[in-house]
């Protein structure tokens, strides 16, 4: 009797522009994309080399972005993995310590999986908050890296293989970039088309609902941490190959920049919102920014200030944050302008 009571969602416009607008509004990457455009235009004007030598820029993006791609899986579930940078270092050391390159790489990846599983074990089974669990893992692995390497860089036994690994393989693309692109495609498919990956969003967005719906939440968390671990270990193997040596102190700047890439990409740290594509955009913005600033001889301290500012902009332009800011500003102003009766 009241079928036409306005219960049909009216936001569905069927013309092209309407559809486009709906699609855009649904995406979480809008702000990351806008930021990327801004950064790219800025870089184009000041340092065109960023684009003429795009292979260098791409290399930097791949350096920052690879770890961030794996991290995205964990963050989307509302957990944190602070151990990624140390995982990278330890995996590199393990790999360089093994003479056979193939076995070394395999061992590095296994190390990543084991570390991921250990993180998940502490979070899921023991029930430690993931910030604390992975912070502990960070310190443990950093120490382990030093012990395994005897506190000095471990040189690859096959240095020539390493050096050729750093050379372009197809066109201008080095193996690192190709691996990065492949990882991105794999993660993108996993998080959008594969059931397990989609359920990560449920685990992060409404964990109780995920439990109630019969999703094996613990197993999903294990999977997420293991993805993060193996991707970080893979990045460690790539770094070790390209540098021809594994440095136990490696990754000192990786942790912050990979989190920064995810945040700039619009991933909500409390989970449930964001996308792998967003992380790619975030890493791209950050990579272009860093290369441009390096070319402009901006000091690293100032670079950090600028990156911090970009991060800040990325976070406060979140519609929710903006609403909160506007709301509190309005109530403040109202309180100020309201006449004060005799007090």
């Amino acid at each position: 009797m009241s079928d036409d009571q306005g219960l049909v969602l009216t936001s569905q416009r069927t013309d092209l522009i309407g559809r486009l607008r709906t699609t855009l509004a649904r995406r979480t990457e809008g702000r990351a994309l806008a930021l990327l455009v801004v950064v790219a235009i800025g870089a184009w004007i000041t340092e065109p080399v960023v684009f003429t030598s795009y292979d260098v820029t791409l290399g930097r993006i791949a350096l920052i972005g690879l770890v961030a791609l794996g991290l995205t899986a964990v963050i989307l579930m509302g957990e944190l993995d602070l151990s990624v940078a140390s995982t990278l270092a330890v995996a590199g050391v393990v790999m360089a310590s093994i003479d056979n390159l193939a076995i070394g790489i395999l061992a590095a990846l296994v190390v990543g999986l084991v570390i991921g599983a250990a993180n998940a074990f502490f979070v899921v089974v023991v029930g430690i908050n993931s910030f604390i669990a992975t912070l502990g893992m960070l310190f443990f692995l950093r120490g382990l890296g030093f012990v395994l390497s005897d506190e000095q860089p471990v040189r690859l036994s096959n240095i020539e293989a390493g050096i050729s690994f750093g050379k372009p393989l197809i066109g201008d693309f080095t193996p690192r970039m190709l691996i990065f692109i492949a990882t991105f495609i794999a993660m993108q498919i996993f998080m959008t088309r594969v059931r397990v990956g989609r359920e990560f969003y449920a685990v992060g967005g409404n964990r109780q609902a995920a439990y109630d719906a019969g999703i094996p939440v613990r197993r999903r968390i294990f999977t997420g941490f293991m993805i993060s671990g193996i991707v970080a270990a893979g990045a460690g193997a790539i770094n070790t190959l390209e540098r021809t040596a594994a440095d136990p102190t490696a990754g000192s700047t990786v942790l912050l920049s990979s989190f920064a890439a995810a945040i700039i990409g619009g991933i909500l740290l409390t989970g449930g919102r964001g996308s792998v594509f967003g992380t790619l955009l975030g890493a791209t913005s950050l990579g272009i920014l860093q290369v441009a600033l390096t070319l402009s001889a901006v000091q690293v301290d100032v670079q950090n200030i600028i990156i911090g500012f970009v991060l800040f902009v990325a976070v406060i332009t979140d519609p929710n944050s903006l609403r909160a800011v506007v709301g509190s500003a309005r109530s403040y102003l109202r309180a100020r302008t309201a006449p004060q009766p005799q007090s």
């Binding site: 409404n206 999703i215 919102r273």
Partner: peptide, 14 residues
């Protein structure tokens, strides 16, 4: 419901 998942995904969650 899971806020960021689509209507269809939510209906068949799990």
């Amino acid at each position: 419901l899971v806020p960021e998942m689509t209507v269809a995904e939510n209906i068949l969650l799990g």
